[in-house]
Amino acid sequence: MMREIRERSRSTMLLAATAAAAIAIPCCIALAEGAGDAATPAGAAVAASDSVVRTDRGPLAIAIVIVCGAVIGGIMLARTGRPLKIRRLAALDAVDEAIGRATEMGRSVLFVPGIQDMTDIQTVAGITILGRVAKTAAEYDAKLEVPTCRSIVMAAARDAVQAAHFEAGRPETYNEGNINYLTDEQFGYVAAVTGSMVRDKPAACFYMGAFYAESLLFAENGNSIGAIQIAGTAEPSQLPFFVAACDYTLIGEEFFAASAYLSGERDQLGSIKGQDFGKLLAVAAILIGCLLATVGVFAPEGAIAHAAETIKTTFGG
């Protein structure tokens, strides 16, 4: 156990260093070749097409370094052992309760990881949350059903659930047959899942991933069978339906934070801190940008107006 932890932390450190270096390299090159042209992206794009490095993307490189730096900084901070305070997310507190209730009622738990493939980061986050849900379900010995819309997602979901059973110390209760591929077709998948909802009446339904029109079909049918429903998606267009029809909803960024939050690992919690730092920078940038632009209104030819315009173009707004 100890050895595994040690090995893991060493490899993590190594990887962190590699990644940080790899992210920093293009930025350095970009800067060295003169990010000055960046104020006129269209012109730079033409000029840059001949050189090896896309100098026109200098501002982006800097933004990546800042955002990633914030997250890595958060992780480093977590490793110093300082206490990490993250506010409670009601939806996550409800996860255990929902699974517990399903166990008591002798009914199953349904987990829908969205309808996109692993090429959508929401599906990846959904699978991460699935791992945590599956661990709790394994501990409670509740039956967890995971219908998937993509073959690769099925494969990944099986791996995650199996790992969760190992972690819960109950590898023998893992049943591959509960994680099934249905069809790639959005509404074929919906028909099958809603049909089985009405028939099997799961007591808890989780919708975590990328959702489109099916969100409300799931949520309303889940409601009609009296299930506790917890949803999480970063698909802005579907948030209203989950918010209206489910008991708890992880809205946008909360959904991504949830996967880290549920793990309880310090590194992951630290990365949430980093996200917050990124937001703080965003707020600062907005305030400065607005302030400059406002001053610019009164002196349209002045240096401040010019600065405001440059900042805005640099951001691509």
Binding site: A16, I64, F255, A257
Partner: peptide
Amino acid sequence: IALGVAATSLRLILGIDKSYLSK
């Protein structure tokens, strides 16, 4: 969401989030 995506991607790339691995 952009920050969430970036942080999640970074967690994966740095090997901090390994929930996709089977055991």
